[in-house]
Simulated assay, not measured.
Amino acid sequence: MNILQVNSSARQNGHSTKLAHELAQALVAAQPGAQLKVRDLTTQPHPALDEATLGALFTPVDQRTPEQAARVALDDALIAEVQAADVVVLGVPMYNFGVSSQLKNWIDAIARAKVTFQYTANGPEGLLKNKKVIAVLTRGGLYRDQPHDTQVPYLRNVLGFLGMTDVQFVYAEGIAMGPEAEAAALASAREQIAELTA
């Protein structure tokens, strides 16, 4: 089993990173021989999608400048990691009701037409199939199953579009609501992790 852990917090030791690490380690312990690859977008931020990047992606491979080839290679590396993974563990903090810019940049990098999805006569088809995704969601307030939870619908939609339809969520909510609430949120998340990895 190949496990890919993606940390997307703006803080190196954020709660989402710590819990994602605990989850990934529990998966490794439960599967002898499992291999873990950690992609830390905090210490190794991925560049945002911009006009130069789009220009590079839409330039035929044999016509790219060395700079364009180098930029595309950065995205290629992320795509290869996801393609090789059986399980993807995402550390997902909530920032202003959404995902972090670090995670959005990663998603923009791995979403590539004719590589991770394609358009067919029957509509779009995701090409990153047969993978399990577990997203560890950390939130300052309480958003689970509420209309203002934009993260879960967004992640289900974009990951499903890429073919990753087996998506589960671990919730740590109320972290900013005082020390007791924070402790309870982390304990609850750890219970959910234990259930998922039993």
Rank of each mutant, 00 (worst) to 15 (best):
M1L: 08
I3E: 02
L4R: 01
Q5F: 00
V6K: 03
N7I: 11
S8F: 00
S9G: 10
A10L: 14
R11K: 15
S16F: 04
K18T: 15
E22Y: 12
Q25D: 13
Q25C: 09
L27V: 03
L27G: 01
A30G: 11
A30W: 13
Q31N: 12
Q31K: 11
Q31Y: 03
Q35M: 07
R39K: 04
D40R: 12
L41R: 10
T43R: 12
T43Y: 04
P45R: 02
D50L: 06
A52K: 08
T53Y: 15
T53F: 15
T53P: 02
G55W: 02
L57H: 15
T59M: 11
T59S: 13
T65G: 09
E67W: 15
E67F: 14
Q68N: 10
Q68P: 08
Q68V: 07
A70D: 11
R71N: 14
A73L: 03
A73E: 10
L74N: 11
D76K: 02
A77E: 10
L78T: 01
E81T: 12
Q83V: 14
Q83S: 09
A84D: 03
D86T: 07
D86H: 11
V87G: 00
V88D: 06
V88K: 04
L90P: 01
V92C: 08
P93M: 07
P93Q: 08
F97E: 08
F97A: 06
S100D: 06
L103N: 03
L103Y: 06
K104P: 03
W106Q: 01
W106A: 02
I107W: 13
A111G: 12
V115E: 10
F117D: 00
G123N: 08
G123D: 06
G123T: 09
G123Q: 07
E125K: 14
E125N: 08
K129W: 10
N130L: 07
K131V: 01
K131A: 01
A135M: 02
V136K: 02
V136D: 03
R139F: 04
Y143R: 06
D145M: 06
Q146G: 12
H148I: 10
H148G: 10
Q151N: 06
V152D: 01
V152E: 10
Y154E: 03
Y154F: 15
L155Q: 05
N157L: 13
G163T: 07
M164F: 07
Q168H: 04
F169Q: 02
V170L: 02
Y171C: 03
Y171P: 02
A172K: 09
I175W: 14
A176R: 14
M177G: 05
G178E: 00
P179S: 08
E182V: 15
A184M: 03
R190Y: 07
E191C: 05
A194G: 14
A198M: 12
